[in-house]
Design a protein around this nucleic acid. Structure first.
Lengths: 142, 142
DNA sequence: CTCAATGCAAAGACTTTGCATTGAT
DNA sequence: ATCAATGCAAAGTCTTTGCATTGAG
C-alpha cells in the first residue's frame, strides 16, 4: 500500500494525518501476525524513536473506531489488531500465540447462511468470530 | 448437582476437597452467565465470607487444568468460566457483556465436518471457538 | 504428620487517563 | 489560530505470585 493511499484512508475518516498514524497504519498493513500494541510499538520505534506507547494505544483505538482496523482479544487477554476487514476466520497457535488469517469462502458462506436462517433467541447478530485453535505441527524432514 | 457428586468430581482429578472448592464449583454449575472470577467471588462471599479473591483465581485455574471448567476471554480481556463441557457456541451481547450458551447440534456437526475435511496449513486443530456477537433486542410490547 | 490449599499483601502485565505541549489544517 | 494529537507519568483493572498459616488425607 502506498503512502498516498494511507493518507487518504486516514483523512477520509476525519482523522488528522500525522507521522505516527502513518507509521502505525503501515506497520499493521505489513504485518501478518495480528500484532499487539506492544509489538506495533517495537516495530515502529526504528522509524519514530520518540513515539509513546500511549500514542500507539490511542491511535490503534482511533483506527478501530474509524473502521480501519479490527480488534480482537487473544487467549492471554491481550489486544490484537487486524488490518484485514473482510469476513475471515482465524487460526490460533496455543503454543506461540500467533494468530493467522484463515480464509475460506465456503466457510464464510456457510456461516452467513447459518446466521440468516436461524434464530438467536432475541439477539441481533452483526458479527461472528471463529477461531480454530490448536498447535502448529512441526515440519517433518522428508 | 448434589454435593456428593461435586465432591467426587473434585476428588477424582486429584484435587483435595475443600469448602472453598465446593462453593466455587457450585456457583459455576448454577450460573448461566459465564461469570468472571470477580463475579464468582461476589456470589460466594455469602457462604464463605473469609474467602480470598486469590483463592478464587487459583481454584478456577485448578478446575480448568483439571478439565472441570473451560475458560474464555471476553471482549474486555476478562476471564470467563464455563461449566458446560460439551461442544457448543456462544452468544455475546456487546452492550451488557453477557455471554450465553448457544447450543445447536447442526452447527456443531457442520463445524466438526468442516475441521475433518479441510486442511489448516500445518495446524493440528483441537478446539473451535464460535461466538455470535450482537445486541440483545429490546423486548417489544405486543 | 505431610504436603497441598488458603489468605493476605505485594507485584505484574496490560491498558487508560490527565494534562501540558506540539503540530496539522 | 484553533483544536486535535502527542508524550509522559500516574493511575486503573485484572491477574499472578510469594510466603506464612491452615487444614485435608
Amino acid at each position: 500500500m502506498n503512502l498516498a493511499l494511507i493518507k487518504e484512508k486516514i483523512t477520509n475518516c476525519g482523522l488528522k494525518f500525522t507521522h505516527q498514524r502513518m507509521v502505525i497504519f503501515l506497520a499493521l498493513t505489513k504485518s501478518e501476525s495480528h500484532p499487539s500494541a506492544e509489538q506495533v510499538y517495537e516495530e515502529i520505534k526504528g522509524s519514530n524513536p520518540s513515539i509513546s506507547i500511549a500514542t500507539v494505544y490511542k491511535t490503534l483505538d482511533s483506527f478501530v473506531q474509524a473502521g480501519l482496523l479490527r480488534k480482537t482479544i487473544d487467549q492471554n487477554g491481550v489486544m490484537r489488531f487486524d488490518s484485514k476487514l473482510d469476513a475471515h476466520s482465524h487460526l490460533y497457535c496455543k503454543t506461540s500465540h500467533e494468530i493467522r488469517d484463515y480464509e475460506n469462502e465456503k466457510l464464510e458462506k456457510l456461516l452467513q447462511d447459518f446466521i440468516e436462517s436461524n434464530d438467536f433467541d432475541g439477539y441481533e447478530i452483526d458479527e461472528i468470530n471463529v477461531v480454530f485453535k490448536g498447535h502448529k505441527r512441526e515440519k517433518t524432514i522428508n
